[in-house]
């Protein structure tokens, strides 16, 4: 295999705390060294993959992701997304994507009002995306969650649209793949992750970057980074 030529960036907001983890996961899965970009930058070179990492950007003050969307770098992230760059929002990154309007819906407090940290099973609802091509259709994978505000909400019309367009990419499930009522946080339709209508911006609450090596308890997340960077990286 030749070296992966893809270019990846991880945006660092004040309060991001999974930025390094994302960088390490990208490196472990694909060998690519991601560049860390500070939120105050107003322009950056073109990237194939831009990760909005997990954490508590701006302390989650006001509302999760609500302040980060105004960071100068976000205009550039939106510009590059329009150009076709893949944008992956993990946990707080997903919250920033909904707050900035790059993805529909909102992430509310968990149903039981407690922070939830544990491994969950997910069913891959759509493996026909740049983020999930390495997974099998309806494959059940296991990833960690760690969030207090992961209760995905969208109105009924929006929900129908997401489902109709195949934009629900991950649902919480049982180990056998049954999804009904499996969301630990109360998310509508047990939604764990969705994609935009152009198929290049994906947000999810679980942390694929924390399960990229067997020693960490699982490696199911690795395939997401492989899917992404192989799709764009011209690996030979």
């Amino acid at each position: 295999m030749g070296a992966n030529k893809a270019k990846a960036a991880v945006i660092v907001f004040p309060g991001s705390n999974c930025d390094n983890d994302a960088g390490r996961a990208i490196k472990a899965a694909t060998g690519v060294d991601a560049r860390f970009v500070w939120h105050r930058e107003t322009s950056m070179e073109d990237f194939d993959l831009i990760v909005l990492p997990g954490g508590f950007s701006f302390g989650d003050y006001l509302r999760t992701g609500a302040i980060a969307r105004y960071s100068p770098i976000m205009k550039e992230v939106i510009r590059q997304a329009r150009r076709g760059a893949k944008v992956l929002g993990i946990c707080n990154g997903f919250q920033i994507l909904t707050e900035s309007g790059m993805l529909p819906g909102a992430l509310l407090r968990n149903r039981d009002l407690l922070f939830l940290s544990k491994d969950v099973y997910l069913r891959v609802e759509n493996n026909n995306t740049a983020f999930t091509s390495a997974y099998k259709e309806k494959q059940v994978i296991r990833l960690p969650i760690a969030h207090g505000d992961g209760n995905y909400y969208i109105d009924d019309e929006g929900y129908k649209r997401l489902v109709g367009e195949g934009r629900v990419v991950f649902r919480y499930s049982a180990p056998d793949g049954a999804t009904e009522g499996m969301a630990p946080n109360g998310a509508k339709g047990d939604i764990a992750g969705i994609i935009n209508d152009h198929g290049n911006v994906l947000g999810l609450m679980p942390h694929p970057e924390r399960h990229c090596e067997a020693i960490l308890g699982g490696a199911d997340g690795k395939w997401m980074f492989e899917s992404l960077l192989n799709a764009v990286g011209g690996q030979s």
Binding site: C18, D21, R24, A25, E209, R210, E213, L216
Partner: peptide
């Protein structure tokens, strides 16, 4: 389960 135990990989 209320403590993030996996951050930091």
């Amino acid at each position: 389960e209320q403590y993030d135990c996996t951050v930091g990989v």
